[in-house]
Structure formats: C-alpha cells, structure tokens
C-alpha cells in the first residue's frame, strides 16, 4: 500500500502493508528508533508520537492511518546541536535515567504544554499519566516539565488556550 505523509517536516512516501503497525514502520522501515516499543498494548506510552500535533500511540496505529497526516517523532523535535527546550530541561533537571521512556515523556510533554502552557504539578502528573518510567524518576521529570513550561512562558508568551 502506497502511503504519503509528512514525517518530521519532510514529505515521505512508503510502500508498506496497510496493517503494519506504525511503530514498526518507524523503527524498522524508516530507521527512526526514537519511538520505543515496550508494552505493545497502549499502557506505557514509550511509543508516543505526535499525529497532527496530538500525542498518540504508534503501537496502536496502523500504517494506513498515516495517510495524509503530519507525524513528529522525537527525532523531529530538536537536534543534537539544538535541543528542544523540553529536551534541555530534561537534561538539566536530571530527568533521564535509563532513557527508554524519555522520547514518549518528551512528546507527551509537548502535547501537554501546547494545551496548557503553565500546568500545576498535579496537571503535569495527569498529563503524563499515560507514560510509565520504571526507573521511577517521576519527581525530576515533573520538575523538568515545570521548568520547560516557565521558560517558554518567559520567552515566548504563548497564547493561552483556555480549553
């Protein structure tokens, strides 16, 4: 099945089985291994990607559903030379331990901060409720998200979305 979509800003065309899972397309066919597979059933959030800017689970999406969508993986969020502000905050606050959950955590944070630019700690916990960290480093992750939120509030003054 021929599928055309935008992957990290670039128009991409693939010929893959329509029922292939998006996490497999990304990791094995395209070679982007940022999205991780852990539970394979929507419980852990390690495979989180952004679909048209919204967090979704790439283990529960089939290749056919990519058609016409704008996909962002962790590889498309920042670069090694210039980290995304969320990524900088995660490194500065020691939010990363083994790192396996971090691509999902960072993308879930991007979705959360777009909806709520200055979340409380409770709102951060709820916003990241679908992402599990088995190193149990949640405190520092929440610290990092708070720091990323206050930095973007200082620098960008994003428009509040009151939803």
């Amino acid at each position: 099945m021929k599928i055309r979509f935008v992957l990290n800003g670039e128009t991409t065309e693939l010929d893959v089985p329509g029922d292939r899972r998006v996490v497999d397309v990304l990791r094995e066919d395209v070679g982007l291994t940022g999205a991780k597979e852990s539970c394979g059933s929507g419980d852990c959030g390690a495979c989180t990607i952004l679909v048209d800017g919204e967090s979704r689970l790439s283990c529960l999406m089939l290749a056919a559903q990519l058609q016409g969508r704008r996909i962002t993986t962790i590889e498309g969020l920042g670069s090694e030379a210039q980290l995304h502000p969320i990524q900088s905050a995660f490194t500065q606050y020691g939010a990363v331990q083994c790192g396996f959950c971090i691509p999902g955590m960072v993308l879930a944070t991007a979705d959360l901060l777009k909806r709520n630019p200055s979340p409380s700690r409770e709102q951060i916990r709820r916003g990241l409720g679908g992402n599990l960290c088995r190193c149990t480093g949640y405190q520092k992750i929440v610290d990092a998200v708070q720091a990323a939120a206050s930095r973007s509030a200082d620098h960008e003054k994003p428009l509040r979305d009151d939803k």
Partner: peptide, 9 residues
C-alpha cells in the same frame, strides 16, 4: 478513562 494518548485515539 485511560490516559491522554488513549483519549486522543
């Protein structure tokens, strides 16, 4: 219900 990504889907 579930989590944010589950509710988005």
């Amino acid at each position: 219900l579930g989590s944010p990504p589950v509710r988005h889907m």
